[in-house]
Every structure is written in C-alpha cells, then in structure tokens.
C-alpha cells in the first residue's frame, strides 16, 4: 500500500466534473508534482484531500487512515499540512503568533508551542521577522509564512499550492532550496506549481491532469515530452 493514495477520486460541482476518476499514489519521502493548465482541477484535488470539499466518489487513503468524510482539522491532526495558493496570513497577529497558533496542533503548552514555532521560523529563515504583524509582510514572506505555519503543525505529508507564484527568480531559487530541505527533514510533499523549471528540477515524479483527468504521469522528463501534455498546455496546431 502506498503512503498516500487516491482511488477513482471524483468531484462534481452540479453538472461540472472538476475531478474525474483520478487515481494516484505517493511514496513516503517523495516530492510529487501535480501539474496541469489553469482550471484543470489541481487546487480542487487539494481541497478534497484536506476535506474542505466533500468528495463525490472515490477514496483517499493516508498511511492507514481513510480521509473521506473527515473534518479538515482532523485531517491536519493526522499529519496532512497545506498552504493556500492565495496566501491567508492571520492578519492581525504577529508572524510568531501565526506560527504558535499552528504549533499547538500536538501540544497544549504555550511554552512548547513557542519553542516549536521558533524552530519552524528558524528552519524557514523567517526568524528575523517574527515580531512583524503578518499583514505587513511582502508577498515572498507571506508565502514563506504559509509554509512555516503548515510545517509547525508537524505534518508527515505537506501540500504546497503554488508557493512560487509571484516570486522573483532569486526568491524562487531560495524556495526550491527550502522545499528540498523540508523533504530532507523527512516530510513527503505534493506540490502544485506552474513554473516549469521549478517543478522539473525538484519533483521525483509528476502527474499531469486536464479537465480533472490524468493525461500523463511518470518521471519529469517523460511527462515534459509527452505529446498530450504539450497539447494541453500549448494547444494543437
């Protein structure tokens, strides 16, 4: 059995099928890329995994838990962390308090949560800005805060939703380093990303979807050269 697995995952919004019979597995310690053109259903897949939307049919399996129908906060407690594509800092809290709030996931003590939060901030190189109000951060730092906050919940599986979008090339390079560092710390990652050189350089395997359906999967090089993938992104002649 895979570390993480979906089987025949389907989501309908009325007449629209956003995710259609999608089955894929992720192995422990992997960086797994989920790509596809705009509106292909990537973020919807994340919302299904974290229980933000109810699943129409199919199953989601994480370690030996079935995630179907579980509340979002329970899924987090089981060890699935996520970041949001549109960043959502807790605006009227400091950076540190943002991270402390999520570090309470597996402890009741403020002292312990604070220590965990400081560690996570150190790890993500955001420690110098810990006393800033979260609403005052630049977009790059907000994306970093998203990741820090997700890490502070101590996930085994981390879902990263376009954490590189809108960043400068320099910030992207730092972001790639950070993602590798997270994987080296033993956390499995599923990443949704549009920036191709990022996805090609860090992913172990990639799944490309369009209209909620799988069109290709495999090693980055295989997927990049797949005719269907190229057509989905660039259109046919």
């Amino acid at each position: 059995m895979n570390f993480f697995e979906t089987q025949h995952l389907t989501k309908r919004f009325g007449g629209l099928i956003a995710v259609n019979d999608l089955s894929f597995g992720v192995e422990e310690g992997e960086i797994f890329g989920l790509i596809g053109p705009n509106g292909s259903g990537k973020t919807t897949v994340f919302n299904l995994i974290t229980g933000s939307y109810p699943i129409t049919s199919g199953t989601i399996q994480f370690k030996n838990h079935r995630l179907n129908g579980l509340a979002t906060w329970k899924i987090c407690k089981l060890g699935v962390g996520r970041t949001f594509q549109v960043v959502k800092p807790l605006r009227r809290m400091t950076v540190l308090d943002n991270v402390i709030a999520s570090a309470f996931n597996h402890t009741g003590s403020l002292h312990e949560a604070r220590d965990k939060a400081l560690q996570a901030l150190e790890f993500c190189d955001l420690i110098e800005k810990k006393d800033y109000p979260a609403k005052g951060l630049t977009i790059g730092d907000r994306k970093r805060l998203e990741i820090t906050r997700a890490l502070a919940t101590e996930p085994a599986l981390l879902l990263l939703d376009e954490t590189m979008a809108g960043l400068t090339p320099q910030e992207q390079t730092e972001g790639v380093e950070l993602i590798r560092k997270i994987r080296d710390a033993g956390i499995t990652i599923i990443i949704v990303e549009h920036i191709m050189h990022v996805i090609m350089s860090i992913c172990d395997r990639i799944l490309c979807i369009n209209y909620g359906q799988e069109i290709a999967s495999g090693l980055p090089a295989e997927v990049a050269n797949n005719q269907d993938v190229i057509e989905a992104y660039l259109g046919k002649d």
Binding site: C76, G81, F84, A101, F104
Partner: peptide, 26 residues
C-alpha cells in the same frame, strides 16, 4: 488569552478556513 484557547480563538477570528487547516476544530 495566554493559553492555547486564546491563540485558537484569535486564529478563528482572523480566518476560520485557515484555523481548520492548522488543526483547530472551529
């Protein structure tokens, strides 16, 4: 306010969806 509850309350005030994804039963 100086406890886990306080942090959770304020997190819910700021964004209930985020609160859920960091393990808070809103």
């Amino acid at each position: 306010l100086r406890s886990k509850w306080g942090y959770y309350f304020v997190a819910i005030r700021e964004d209930q969806d985020v609160a859920e994804t960091i393990g808070i039963s809103s």
